[in-house]
Amino acid sequence: MLQINHSKANHLLAALSDIEWQRIGHFLEPVELPLGQVLYESGQPMAYAYFPTTAIVSVLYVMESGASAEIAVIGREGVVGVSLFLGGDTTPSRGVVQSAGMGMRLNAQRIKNEFNLSGPFMRLLLRYTQALISQMTQTAACNRHHSLDKQLCRWLLLSMDCLQGNELVMTQELMANMLGVRREGVTEAALRLQAAGLIRYARGRITVLDRKGIELRTCECYAVVKREYDRLLPAMLAQ
């Protein structure tokens, strides 16, 4: 049975009208999203679109060598699988659960059908997609021009925006893969933030102690992304 209150923890689903709920609500399935689960692989057809509620999903680009880097992070503000309703069906990236939690999933054909109705939900999905593209482009610029410390701060802030709470549970290896650096580099950067009193860092767990201090320490990239999300999506989705 569909858990309505749980499903509406996702901001896009919460924006559905009563008519839209009547049309697609009972097709939504609650799913557990364990840490490290791969939701889709590069070049493989997607069976579902995922709407995280308490989980965070990382979109990674994986090189032929196996090295990877995060290009976007998606949580309760969005949907994983925009390629489905944009007509691509596949994508060269990989979707991996960054922080374990729950989500709702919708069959690929169902979200295509809903998008093709050209109604309010389609327009909301398109605005979200533009915001997601802005995050991807800003991430690429940040990874090229800013220090690892600043990148880590940006990543922490974006991740916190996707969660209810101030704690992330994940492996050092996954963090390193997402930031595209060695595990030792992530550890050193995290320990510097801990020494500054901004976070508490233990193996597999990061607790943000001073969000304002992290905001002051990061580059302009976080603010650019945040402004775009706030501009493109209704005020209720930015909360």
Rank of each mutant, 00 (worst) to 15 (best):
E173A: 08
T137K: 09
F115N: 07
L156D: 09
Q151A: 05
Q172Y: 11
L179H: 12
V169Y: 09
E188I: 10
L174Q: 01
L126V: 11
K226N: 15
A202M: 08
V224P: 00
M175D: 05
Y201L: 03
Q194D: 08
L125S: 11
Q172A: 13
N166W: 04
R203D: 08
R227P: 00
R227M: 09
R182N: 14
L209W: 02
F115W: 11
L179P: 00
N116D: 13
L157F: 01
E173D: 05
A108Y: 02
C153E: 03
K112T: 08
Q151E: 10
Y128H: 06
R200G: 02
R205F: 03
L106C: 02
G213V: 06
I111N: 07
I133A: 04
S147D: 13
E167G: 01
E114D: 07
C162K: 00
R127W: 08
T171W: 14
T218W: 05
R123C: 15
I133L: 04
I111H: 02
Y201H: 14
R127T: 14
T218G: 04
A140K: 07
I199V: 06
L179A: 02
V186G: 03
Q151R: 15
Q172F: 10
P120H: 06
M136L: 03
R154V: 01
R182E: 11
I206H: 02
T218D: 03
L156Q: 02
T139H: 11
L174F: 07
